[in-house]
Amino acid sequence: MEYLPPLLFEDEAAAALRVSVATLRRIRKRGEISTRLISGRWRYTHADLVEYQENQKVGACVERAGPVRSQATGLPGDQNRRTGMRLGTTMTAVSEARVAHHLAQAIFGKPK
């Protein structure tokens, strides 16, 4: 008889991955983890969990040459630095208006 790997219930697999059961269900529905449906209940093997974790690895950050567009604003990254503020600093409404005014002048020129 062939060896069968032990099957984990959904709550056991979630605990092993240190996520909630709801998160594990979302991962399963997105097709990011292998599962088995046995008697109407989802089961996972240790190999399924290891494979999922391996697929989640993220490579090291690599510095890019040239301007990188911001996902939030679509502006090239170098324009974001013109504000004189450090990255991650929250701007007030007054400073946002001042920066917007100066950027508009830089892009479109001063009014005549």
Rank of each mutant, 00 (worst) to 15 (best):
E54V: 03
V94R: 07
S34D: 14
G88R: 07
E96T: 14
D11E: 09
V50D: 03
A97D: 09
E51L: 13
P6Q: 12
T35L: 10
I107C: 13
R30N: 14
Q53I: 09
K57W: 11
L37G: 11
T45P: 10
G84K: 05
A65Q: 04
T23E: 02
D48A: 15
R18K: 03
V62K: 03
I107M: 10
V68M: 06
R18H: 00
E51S: 15
L87S: 06
T35F: 09
G40V: 00
V21F: 01
D11M: 02
A93I: 14
E51H: 14
T89H: 05
P76N: 09
S70D: 12
A106Q: 02
Y52V: 09
L7G: 06
H46I: 15
S39Q: 15
S70K: 04
R64S: 02
H46T: 15
L8D: 00
T23K: 00
A100Y: 00
R98S: 00
A47Y: 06
H101N: 12
I27P: 03
T89N: 09
V58T: 08
M85G: 01
G88P: 01
G88D: 01
H101Y: 04
T89E: 05
P6I: 06
A100R: 03
Y52Q: 02
E96W: 08
E12W: 13
K29C: 10
E51F: 12
L4G: 06
V19D: 00
S20H: 04
R82F: 13
A14R: 11
R28Q: 03
L7E: 06
A104E: 09
R43F: 06
L49F: 04
I38L: 15
D48N: 13
E51T: 15
A47L: 13
Y3I: 11
T83M: 14
E63N: 02
A15I: 02
E63C: 01
T73S: 09
Q53A: 14
M91P: 09
G74W: 04
Q56S: 00
L8H: 04
R86V: 06
K112F: 14
Q56I: 04
G109S: 02
V94M: 10
L87Q: 07
N55G: 14
R64C: 08
D48S: 10
R64M: 02
